[in-house]
Design a protein around this nucleic acid. Structure first.
Lengths: 157, 157
DNA sequence: CATGATCGACAACCAGGTTTACTATATGGG
DNA sequence: CCCATATAGTAAACCTGGTTGTCGATCATG
C-alpha cells in the first residue's frame, strides 16, 4: 500500500484551510467598514465576549500573560473596539467590555463566519462538512481559544 | 434545520488540529534530540529542501522579505542546522544548505509526521482521513508553504 | 563599457510576547 | 483591629521576527 501524501502535508492543509477562512472573513470585514481588525483580534473578541472581562482573566483565557493581554486591550481601546471601566466592587479591577462598535463588528464577523461555513457546506456537501468537523473534534479535542500563536509559532513552546 | 455550530468554530477547529499535529511532532523531535527547533522551522526546512537555496529564493517561497529570510538563515546557522557556501557561478549568491544535522532532523520530522498521520488514520479510519484531506484540498487550494504567519496573524495582511 | 538589475547585509523601526518589579487594593488569620 | 499575603493593573527592559530603506558588490545587457 502506497503512502498517498507525505505526512507533513496534513498540517499544512489544515493551516491553509484555517487561513483561507480567516482571510475570507477579514475581506468581508474590510468591505463592511472594519479594515483595521487583524486576524488575532477575532480571538480576543471571542474571549472578551458580550459580558466583558478583566485583563488577568483575558490573559488566562487566551493563554498569554496578563501584561500581553493588557497591551492588546490598550490597542483595541485605541481603535475604539473596547472600553475600560472601574469595577465598583473591587477598586483593583477594571472591567473590559466591547463598545457598540466592537459588538457590531462581532456581529458582522459572526455573520461572515456563518456565511463561509455555509459556502463550504455547499461546496463539499453539508454532510461531509459535518463529518469533517466531527473528525476534527475527535482528533483535536480541548481548548479552542488560545492566543499565544506568535509566541507558540516562533518561540520554544 | 438548525445550525449545529456557530461559524467561528470551524476555523478554530482547523487551527486546533494543526496545532495538535505540530505539538505532537515537536514533542517527538525533542525526544529524539532536537529540543531547539521551533514550529516555524519546519516550514523553513521544507522550503530549503535537500537541494539548498538562497536567501532571496527562500524569502519568495515563504512569502517574507529576503531580509527576514536572511535573519532566519542566520539563526538556523547558529543552531547548526544550516550552512552557507559561496556560489562558484555567481559571487553575489550564497547557497544555503541543510547540514547533516539538519538533514537528519528533517528525516526525523518526516517520520514523525508520517506517524501522526498514521495514528489519525487509525483513530478515525483511513478512508475518513483521506476524505478529510480531499475536502481540505478542495476548500483551500493553493500554496501550502507560507511563513509569514506572525505578521499575517497580528499584522494588517 | 556603462547602466540597470540582483544578491546579501546592515540599520532603524514596529508588533507582540516574556520576565521582573512596583503600586494599589482586598482578604483573612492572629 | 492590624498586619501579612495575595491579587489587579501597569511599566520597563528585553527577545524574536517581521518590515522598509539603504548600500556595496556583482552580474547581465544594450
Amino acid at each position: 500500500m502506497v503512502e498517498p501524501t507525505p505526512g507533513y502535508e496534513l498540517p499544512l492543509q489544515l493551516f491553509a484551510a484555517f487561513r483561507a477562512i480567516i482571510d475570507a472573513a477579514h475581506d468581508d470585514l474590510a468591505r463592511h467598514g472594519y479594515p483595521d481588525v487583524k486576524p488575532m483580534h477575532g480571538f480576543v473578541f471571542q474571549a472578551i465576549g458580550t459580558q466583558g472581562t478583566t485583563a488577568v482573566e483575558l490573559g488566562a483565557r487566551l493563554g498569554v500573560s496578563k501584561q500581553a493581554a493588557g497591551k492588546t486591550i490598550a490597542n483595541l481601546e485605541k481603535l475604539g473596539y473596547v472600553e475600560r471601566a472601574a469595577d465598583p466592587n473591587d477598586a483593583r479591577r477594571k472591567l473590559v467590555r466591547l463598545t457598540a462598535h466592537g459588538l457590531d463588528m462581532l456581529a458582522v464577523s459572526a455573520r461572515s463566519f456563518d456565511a463561509i461555513q455555509a459556502q463550504w457546506a455547499e461546496t463539499i456537501g453539508p454532510e461531509r462538512l459535518a463529518a469533517l468537523q466531527n473528525d476534527l473534534r475527535t482528533l483535536a479535542p480541548g481548548e479552542l481559544l488560545r492566543l499565544d500563536v506568535p509566541g507558540w509559532f516562533s518561540g520554544d513552546r
